[in-house]
Computed example of a mutant assay.
Amino acid sequence: MPLIEKGRITEDRFHRVSDDDALPEGAPVLVGVDRFLKEAEALKSRQAPVGVIWPNDRPIAEIEPYLGQLSLIALVFPSFRDGRAYSQARLLRERLGWSGPLRAVGNVLRDQFLLMQRSGFDQIEAIKEDDAKAFDEAVHRYSTFYQPATDERPSLLRQRLGRTARPE
């Protein structure tokens, strides 16, 4: 699957490794949550970046003690109708202070690209190659938003308050 990062198709440098496979030496790996939690201490001393695939049915607060040893967090969208990963992304960014790469994986559709970006995702595992063009169109389609989000674009209220605020 193509990986969209900052609106462009990019090479995925992380190797997805199943629970039973050996970890490639010196290469960035992306492992499932069960393997990560079971081998957290051993992975801490690894000389290459480690990422985790975090399911949306697991409390995101459980990841907090491990944030310092992670280079990537991938949140799972098992169905396009299941939006729990959006909430996890916002919690990671706003409450837990995660500033590293945040990837959307699973059933990711073009219609969701803008909301994913606004929720804090900076990488999206897309289904099709031409999704990168659709991503660029989606994130530039609107210039004003009612809701505040993690993407730091001011909401309409913040824009209005900024214009009407008087200097002290």
Rank of each mutant, 00 (worst) to 15 (best):
S155I: 09
I60M: 03
S45F: 11
S87A: 13
L102V: 12
F135M: 05
A126L: 02
D122L: 08
S18R: 15
A165N: 03
P49D: 00
I73L: 03
K6F: 14
R103E: 06
F145E: 04
K44A: 12
E64V: 14
P59G: 02
G106E: 07
D12V: 15
L156Q: 10
Q117A: 11
K38D: 10
R110W: 09
I60Y: 03
E62F: 10
R153W: 12
V31H: 02
E25M: 04
E168C: 04
V29L: 08
E5W: 11
H15W: 15
T144Q: 11
R81H: 15
G51T: 06
R90E: 12
R8G: 02
A104S: 07
F14D: 01
L91A: 14
G100L: 07
G68L: 07
L37N: 03
A138Y: 10
L37M: 12
E125G: 01
G162F: 06
P148R: 04
V76Y: 14
A42E: 13
G68F: 06
W54R: 05
P78N: 03
E168H: 05
A149N: 04
H15V: 15
T164A: 13
Y146A: 11
G7W: 02
G106Q: 06
R90Q: 12
F145Q: 01
A126R: 01
A22M: 13
I9Y: 10
P167L: 12
I127S: 14
D34Q: 15
L91G: 00
R160L: 15
H15N: 11
I127A: 13
R158L: 12
V76K: 04
L3Y: 09
T10N: 03
R141N: 02
L3T: 12
D130R: 09
S79T: 11
I127R: 15
D151Y: 03
R93L: 03
V50W: 04
W98A: 06
A126Y: 05
N56T: 14
K6A: 14
D131F: 13
P78D: 05
E129V: 11
R8L: 09
L157D: 07
P2F: 08
V50S: 02
L91M: 14
I60D: 01
A104M: 06
G32K: 03
Y86H: 10
F145D: 04
L161F: 10
P154N: 06
Q123I: 00
D57W: 13
K133M: 11
E129A: 11
P49H: 01
A165E: 08
R81L: 14
